[in-house]
Every structure is written in structure tokens, then in C-alpha cells.
Simulated assay, not measured.
Amino acid sequence: MRIHRTQHTSNFTVLPNSIVRHPRLSLAARGLLGHLLSLPDGARETVQSIAEKVSEGRIAVRKAMAQLEAEGYVRRVRHQDPETGTWSTEVTVSDAPMTGESPTDKKLTAGPAKGRFLGRSPYGSKTQEKNPSPTPVQASDSDDQAAEGGRGEASQQQNQEDASPEVGRAAAVLGRLGAVEPKLSLGAAEVLNLAPLAAEWLRRGVSELELRNTLVAGLPATVLAPARFIANRLERKMPTPRRVADPAAPAVALRAECGDCGRPLPLGQSQGICGQCSGVERAPEDPRPSVGTAAEAASLIDQIRQRRAAGTVRGSRRGFATVHP
């Protein structure tokens, strides 16, 4: 390998071989250090501004900067200005590893700012007269008791809702969804968060089977967030309240039966016989044709046998046929 070097008189940077041949620094870190050493003193450069000028990207520049800080070529010192109280970060770049404390580093001097406070108007008295500070109102004991009572009632109401039987049934349905559809597997915390919303379905008259079928029907190919998907479906498809029979309502009275035929008696009649059995009402006629008695059927069969014996009728698979001489 032949190396050709050009002698420069201006616009050049001298780098020691310890940087160019550093065994632990990547090529990106060596190039970034050479770029930083070529800048004038007091230059303002950040990871983002450097990433906009090179093709490696912000992530590669950030990794290279971290390597330089780990090896001691770059040092960041954060300090507070004692006059204004503002914080700033000072970056020091060196062509040799900085192992000790540099005399130019400023130590952290956190504390109250000296002089006037940052943000105070020079005309503070006039500003105070125009915009007086509101007088703080001290909360009375009655207000504190009312607030505590309101929070206690809300907490008690929430506990009652969580302890309702519908919430327990809804939690059981949600906990078993993973066995029916693995895409909708939920954790214990997610089940507890979704149970009150699913319990509202049960309060509106929806059965547990219908609730489960609604949640697992028509799922997409992939469900990335099962809890968020179920919450969205529960809110979006919330049914309207259904009419449910009041358990305290009186039961419908059963109609009594006729003592003779067993037909239901008219409303209001609790015993006795119906109008047809008593002869007051006429029984409806049966529209179906009457069927012959057993005696008539036996006589017809006897006549067919006699005709077959005389040879006037012969049997076949399709039925009987009359033989004419």
C-alpha cells in the first residue's frame, strides 16, 4: 500500500494516530471526533444538527457520540448561571482522553439565583397595582367535611357497583374469552377494568351467552390490543334496555278446566262444566269426512276374497284388477 500525503498550509486538522487507530472506537465515532475537532472553538453543534449533514442518520450519530463520551474524548458538564439561575450544558471535545477534571469545567452550582429573579418585571410595583394577586381563600371546616362526605359517598357507590352480581358474572364471561377465542385473552387487571362496562349489558337484559357471542363474532385477522378492542366493542354496540318481567308482579291466573271434557272454562269461572257439556253451546261440527267402522271394513275385505276365489279378481303389485270373461 502506497500512501500519498499532501502538505497543507491552511484549513486542515491534525489528528493523533491514537484516535485514527483507536481499537474500541467505531469508524463512525472516529469520523465524528475528527469532525468535532475541526470545528472552531465556541461552535454550536448538536446530534440533530450533525445528523442533518451526514448520511449515517441520527441514531448512528448518537451511538458514536456515546462511544466518544465513554472513552473520554467528549465531556458534558451541566451548570447553573448564578446571576440568572438558568441551566445550560457545556460540551468539551479533546484530542486526548480526559481522565481527570478539566480546569475549564464549571461545577454544578444549584441554588437560589442572585440579583433579580428571572421573569420579574422592572416595574413590579405598577404591575402589582394593575394586576393584584388574588387573596387565597381558606377552606372552612364545613367545606372540608362536605368534600370528604362527597368522596366517601362516591367511593361507597363505586364499591357497591363493583360488588354487584352482574359485575361478577361479567368478569367470569371476560375471563373465559381466551378459552373460546385466543385473540381475546385478557389479564386479571384488564378483566377487572372491563367488568363494570360488560355488567351494564347484563343489566339491560342480555344473557351471558349473547354477550360472549357478540364479543367474539367477526374478529379481524389480528387483534393487537384485546382489552382496547373489547372496550370499544362494548361501548359501540351497547344495547338498549330490554323489558324484563318484574319478579314482584302477580302471576297470570290459570284457567280452570271443565269437569266433564277437560276443556278450559271461560275467564272468571273457577269450577263446573263448560257450555257444550251443559247443552248451552253447540259443539262445532268436525269438517273431516267420517271414517267407516270396523264392521264395514271387514265386510269389504270379505267381498274381495269371494271375488278372488271366483276368479273375477286377481292380484298384482299395482293392486287388484277385475277380469272380464
Rank of each mutant, 00 (worst) to 15 (best):
E83L: 07
V77P: 03
E56V: 15
A113N: 14
D81C: 15
H79E: 10
A70T: 13
A60F: 09
G100T: 06
A43F: 03
V74Y: 03
A96H: 13
V54A: 02
S49A: 09
G115N: 10
L39Q: 07
G57E: 09
V91T: 08
E52W: 02
V61A: 02
I50S: 01
S55R: 10
D95Y: 05
W87E: 12
Y73Q: 05
V91H: 03
R44I: 06
A96F: 12
M98E: 04
A70L: 11
Q67V: 03
T46D: 03
W87Q: 10
E52F: 02
G85S: 06
L39W: 01
E56P: 00
E90A: 12
T46F: 01
K53R: 13
T84G: 07
T46R: 06
R62A: 15
E83S: 08
G111K: 11
T89N: 13
V74E: 02
T84W: 03
Q48G: 09
R58N: 11
G85D: 06
E69K: 13
T89E: 12
I50Q: 04
A60K: 15
P40T: 06
G42A: 03
I59L: 13
T84E: 06
S38I: 00
A60N: 11
T89L: 13
G111H: 11
K106V: 15
V77R: 15
E83Q: 07
K114S: 15
A51E: 07
S102M: 10
M65D: 06
E83T: 09
E90W: 09
A43I: 01
S94T: 11
E71F: 09
P97C: 06
T46Q: 01
V47P: 00
S94K: 10
E45Q: 04
A43S: 07
E56W: 13
Q67C: 04
E90K: 12
T99E: 10
E83Y: 00
E45M: 09
G72F: 09
Y73S: 04
Q80G: 00
T99M: 12
S55N: 07
E101L: 15
L68W: 01
K114L: 14
P97L: 04
I50E: 01
K107M: 13
G111F: 05
T84I: 08
R76W: 13
